[in-house]
C-alpha cells in the first residue's frame, strides 16, 4: 500500500510537470497579456513598461526556466490582473465552488442511485420508462438554459429563491460558507440543482446499466434462491457490484465540476473557481491559468487515487499494486 501511494505520488508529480509545460506553451500562444490588460489606446511605451513589470520582456525559454525555478520554490507567480499570488486567488474561490459541487453531487447521488436501482430492476414498468426518458431530457438540456429557466420561475415569477450570489455567509477558518445560514442555503439551492441535474441523469443511467448487467448474474439468482428478500437482493447483493462504473464516473465528474462549473457559476453569479479560469483566459492572465490547470490536474490525480481506493473497498477482487 505504501509503495502504491509513493508510486501514485511520483506519477502525480510527472503529470503536473507535463501539464504545466504544455499549458505554459499554450498560454504563450494566447494574446499578449499587456495588450489585453491595458486600454486599447495604450502607447507602445506603456505596453513595454507593463511587459517588463509582468516579466514578459525576456525570451519564452528564459521565462520558462524562471517559471520552473519558482515552482520548485513553491511560487506560482502573481496574477497579472490582481497582482496577488495566483494560488491565493484560486483558493479564495475554492470554498464557494466546493459548496455547490458537493451539494449537487450529493443531491445527484441521493436521487440517482435509488432511481437507477429501481429502473434497472424493473425496466419495463411505465414509471421506469418515464424516468428514463426524463433522464435523457436532463442530459440533453443545456445547463445555461436550465439555469435561466430556474431563475425566471423561482426568483422572478414566484419570488421564492434569490437569483444569484451567495447570500449571508459564515466565515469558518477564513472560508466563506453559505450553507450555515438560512439565507445562504436559499442561495445555494438553484445553482446546486442546475449542476445536479445532468449528474443525476448520468448517474441514474449508469446505475441502471450496472444493475441490469448485475441482475443477470447467477449470484443474484442464487441470492434469491437463498430466500433473500427482493430489497436486500437489490441493495445488498446487486448494487455494490453495479457501483464500480458509477464510482469512476462520479469521481471524474466531481473533479470536472470543481474545476469547470463555469457556466453555472456565471449564470448564478457564484464567485467560484470556474469563472476565475474563464476570466483569466480571456485576459491572458498566465500565472492564474497555469496555476489553475496544475491544480486541476493534481485534483484529478487525487480523485483517481481516491476512486482506486474505493474500488478495493467495493470490490475485493481489485488489488492495488
Amino acid at each position: 500500500m505504501l509503495f502504491y501511494v509513493i508510486k501514485r505520488f511520483i506519477q502525480m508529480i510527472i503529470v503536473i510537470a507535463i501539464v504545466a509545460t504544455i499549458v505554459f506553451i499554450f498560454v504563450n500562444m494566447l494574446g499578449d497579456p499587456a495588450v489585453l490588460l491595458l486600454p486599447p489606446e495604450a502607447s507602445p511605451e506603456e505596453l513595454a513598461k507593463a511587459r517588463a513589470a509582468m516579466g514578459l520582456d525576456s525570451s519564452p525559454w528564459e521565462q520558462y526556466k524562471l517559471f520552473v525555478v519558482n515552482v520548485i520554490h513553491g511560487d506560482l507567480g502573481n496574477s497579472f490582473v490582481f497582482r496577488e499570488p495566483a494560488m491565493k486567488l484560486i483558493f479564495e474561490r475554492m470554498p464557494a465552488t466546493l459548496e455547490i459541487v458537493v451539494l449537487a453531487m450529493f443531491i445527484a447521488a441521493l436521487i440517482a442511485i435509488p432511481l437507477g436501482v429501481y429502473v434497472g430492476a424493473h425496466p419495463n414498468t411505465f414509471a421506469s420508462r418515464s424516468i428514463l426518458s426524463l433522464s435523457l431530457l436532463c442530459i440533453s438540456m443545456p445547463t445555461f438554459w436550465f439555469g435561466i429557466v430556474l431563475i425566471l420561475v423561482f426568483s422572478v415569477q414566484l419570488g421564492w429563491l434569490p437569483s444569484s450570489g451567495r447570500g449571508d455567509v459564515v466565515i469558518v477558518w477564513g472560508m466563506r460558507l453559505s450553507f450555515l445560514t438560512w439565507d445562504g442555503i436559499k442561495h445555494l439551492i438553484l445553482p446546486a440543482i442546475t449542476l445536479a441535474v445532468q449528474q443525476l441523469a448520468t448517474q441514474l443511467r449508469l446505475t441502471r446499466a450496472g444493475m441490469m448487467e448485475v441482475l443477470r448474474q447467477d449470484y443474484i439468482k442464487f441470492a434469491k434462491a437463498k430466500g433473500v428478500s427482493p430489497h436486500d437482493v437489490l441493495y445488498g447483493h446487486a448494487l455494490k457490484n453495479a457501483l464500480i462504473p458509477v464510482i469512476t464516473v462520479y469521481g471524474l465528474e466531481f473533479g470536472g465540476l470543481v474545476v469547470f462549473a463555469t457556466i453555472t457559476e456565471t449564470i448564478f453569479a457564484w464567485p467560484g473557481m470556474g469563472k476565475l479560469l474563464i476570466d483569466s483566459i480571456n485576459i491572458s492572465d498566465r500565472p492564474v491559468i497555469i496555476a489553475y490547470l496544475m491544480l486541476a490536474s493534481m485534483l484529478f490525480v487525487v480523485i483517481n487515487f481516491i476512486v482506486d481506493i474505493l474500488y478495493t473497498v467495493v470490490d475485493p477482487r481489485i488489488d492495488l499494486r
Binding site: I148, I151, L152, S155, G159, A269
Partner: peptide, 18 residues
C-alpha cells in the same frame, strides 16, 4: 456592487428586486 456578468441573471436580479 455585485458583478452579474450574465445578462439574463442581471435582469432577473433587477426584476426580482434583489
Amino acid at each position: 456592487m455585485r458583478p452579474l456578468k450574465n445578462d439574463a441573471t442581471r435582469v432577473a436580479a433587477l426584476l426580482s428586486g434583489e
